[in-house]
Computed example of a mutant assay.
Amino acid sequence: MAPSTTTPAARDRDAIEVVAFDAMGVLYSCADDVAELLVPYLRSHGCVLDRPGIAQLYRECSLGKMSSADFWATAGAAGASDEEYCLNHRLTEGAVALLAELEATGVRLVCLSNDVSEWSKLLRERFGLGEYVTDWFVSGDIGVRKPGPEAFATLCRRLDVVPERVLLIDDREENVTAARDAGFQALRFGRPHLSTMDQLRKELRPW
C-alpha cells in the first residue's frame, strides 16, 4: 500500500463540522473598530469622553448591559444612530465568495464575535451574511466576550458540537490561544501569509 499523502493538518480539517468566523478583522475589514471607527464617530457627534471611558462604555454595551440607544445617550453623542454608524463598516474583500464556497461543502458556518447586539444584526442584514452564516454568537446577546472560556463553551453547548470539531478563524492572538486551550482548532487571520480571503481559501483546502 502506498503511504498516505494526507497531512495531519488535512486530517484535522476533515474532522471539522463547524467553522466559526470572527467579525471585526475577519468578515469585516476594520480590525479595531473602537479606535478606528467608533471613537471618530462619537467625536463627530459631540462626545467628550476620553478613550478609556469610551472603551469601558463600549465593553458594557458589548456585554448586553445596555442597549445601543443607551450607549449613544450615555456617551453624549447627540444625533448618533446605529444605522449611520454602521455605514462606516466594510466587508473584507472576498468574504462572501469564501462563505458561499464553504457553505456548499456542507460545513456549518457561524460567527463568534465581540460586538454590540444591534450593530451586529444591522451589519449582517446589510451585507446578506445570514444567507451563509447560520448562527451568530454575539457577546451582546450571550453576555460573555472572547477570550473568556465561556464564549467558546456557549458555542459548543448551543450547537451540540465537541470543541475538536470547531475551527475558529480570528485576527486576535489572545482569542486564537484561548480557542485552542478550549479544544478548538484555530487560525489567526491577518498574520503574514494569511491576510486575504484568497490566502485563507488555500489554507482551508482540501475543502
Rank of each mutant, 00 (worst) to 15 (best):
A80C: 13
A80R: 06
S81Q: 09
D82Y: 08
E83C: 12
E84G: 13
Y85R: 13
Y85F: 09
C86H: 12
L87V: 09
L91N: 09
L91R: 10
T92M: 10
T92P: 13
E93D: 07
G94P: 14
G94Q: 10
V96E: 05
V96N: 07
A97K: 12
L98R: 09
L99E: 01
L99G: 06
L99Q: 02
A100Y: 07
A100S: 12
L102H: 10
A104G: 07
A104C: 04
T105M: 02
G106D: 11
V107M: 03
V107Y: 03
L109N: 11
V110M: 01
C111A: 08
C111I: 02
C111D: 00
L112F: 00
S113W: 06
N114F: 01
S117C: 10
S117L: 04
S117V: 08
W119A: 14
K121F: 14
L123V: 13
R124S: 12
F127Q: 07
G128H: 03
L129Y: 08
L129E: 03
E131V: 06
E131A: 12
W136R: 09
F137Q: 09
G140Q: 08
D141K: 14
I142D: 08
R145M: 10
R145P: 09
K146V: 08
K146Q: 01
P147A: 03
P147G: 06
A151H: 00
F152D: 00
T154I: 12
L155I: 01
R158C: 04
D160K: 04
V161F: 03
V162W: 07
P163W: 01
E164T: 05
E164V: 00
L167T: 05
L168V: 06
I169W: 02
D170H: 09
D171V: 04
D171E: 01
R172H: 05
E173S: 15
N175W: 13
G183F: 10
F184L: 04
F184P: 06
Q185V: 03
Q185C: 00
A186D: 06
A186Y: 12
A186V: 01
P192L: 00
H193L: 10
L194G: 00
S195R: 09
S195G: 08
E203Q: 14
E203I: 04
E203F: 09
